[in-house]
């Protein structure tokens, strides 16, 4: 068990960060039907804002995260207002929107590259020291675990309450399940749309902020992580809030534990690591064409019963 502690703790942290990144992607897809490839850039922007705010603005961890949230949220809102909303009004299909998001991604990523290049910030890390607070064998629980994991869980809990209890949350769910019906029911779809993008961008920004504490960042940080973000979201069914939370942790755990096992006991080359999350996507979809969203505890129990019954 001691041997498992290290990959488990890593998985916990990575899973939280992937979840935080993927939640926004799922929300914007569910409410506005945009497979947003530019979502990765919100992560990078948040990471940079955090690093600049903490290293140069002396804002501290909370201040840094807040500014990361704010700025990334603004950029996300701006992209929707300027690009996606117009395109959607023109009747663009999801694949058209996806293509547009590739364009938006190019614009954001390389604008950031120009600024980072000129400012000498091509590689930067937020100056917040991560320290171990407890060690179990070779595994260590760090201060970052204590910030990032509870933050993610708190975000999930708050969003749960928002979706369940508040008017705007219910409106979001309504728009996600049927846009036209939502519109006829008198929901202010414009407002809901804006709120969705603000939350989505902001969460990506916060995730980026944590990432810049975790590891040095560069203008392509988010882009490099994009496939993992999509993996988390798509595993959860791409439209499901709880599915995404599950997806994020599945990606984190499978990758960390998976390669540790394969490498330790089967001698598999560690360089195969990036294949694991991708293979899981393929396998899950061949098994459940709608992703993990459809997998409920009850459903699992039933299939188990069937298997035993046989």
């Amino acid at each position: 068990m001691l041997q498992l502690a290290a990959p488990l703790l890593t998985a916990l942290l990575l899973g939280s960060l992937y979840t935080l990144m993927a939640l926004g992607l799922t929300m914007t897809y569910a409410v506005t039907s945009i497979p947003n490839f530019a979502h990765a850039e919100f992560v990078t922007i948040g990471a940079y804002i955090m690093a600049v705010a903490v290293n140069f603005g002396k804002l501290g961890l909370v201040g840094g995260l807040a500014s990361a949230f704010l700025f990334a949220a603004l950029v996300a809102l701006a992209t929707d207002e300027l690009v996606f909303k117009k395109l959607a009004a023109l009747g663009a299909t999801p694949l058209h929107l996806l293509t547009a998001s590739i364009g938006v991604g190019l614009v954001l990523r390389y604008t950031l590259s120009i600024v980072a290049d000129l400012k000498g910030l091509l590689s930067v890390k937020t100056r917040v020291v991560v320290n171990p607070v407890a060690t179990i064998g070779q595994a260590y629980l760090t201060t970052l675990h204590l910030w990032a994991v509870p933050t993610t869980l708190a975000v999930v809990a708050v969003l749960h309450l928002v979706f369940m209890k508040t008017k705007i949350g219910k409106a979001m769910r309504a728009m996600a399940s049927n846009l036209d019906l939502a519109r006829v029911s008198g929901i202010n779809t414009t407002l809901v749309r804006r709120v969705t993008w603000v939350i989505a961008g902001g969460l990506a920004g916060v995730a980026g902020g944590f990432w810049s504490v975790y590891s040095p960042i560069n203008p392509e940080t988010g882009w490099v992580a994009l496939l993992w973000i999509f993996a988390a979201s798509i595993l959860g069914g791409f439209r499901s809030f709880y599915g995404t939370v599950l997806g994020g942790y599945v990606v984190g755990f499978s990758e960390s534990l998976g390669i540790t096992f394969l490498s330790r006991y089967l001698g598999v080359n560690v360089a195969y690591k990036p294949m694991i999350a991708l293979l899981i996507i393929v396998v899950v979809f061949l098994w459940k064409p709608t992703g993990l969203a459809e997998v409920t505890p009850r459903g699992l129990l039933e299939s188990l019963k069937k298997a035993v019954g046989r």
């Binding site: 942290l13 990575l14 490099v224």
Partner: peptide
């Protein structure tokens, strides 16, 4: 994105 598992 990350190499923590490799380091372990």
């Amino acid at each position: 994105p990350d190499y923590s598992t490799e380091v372990q």
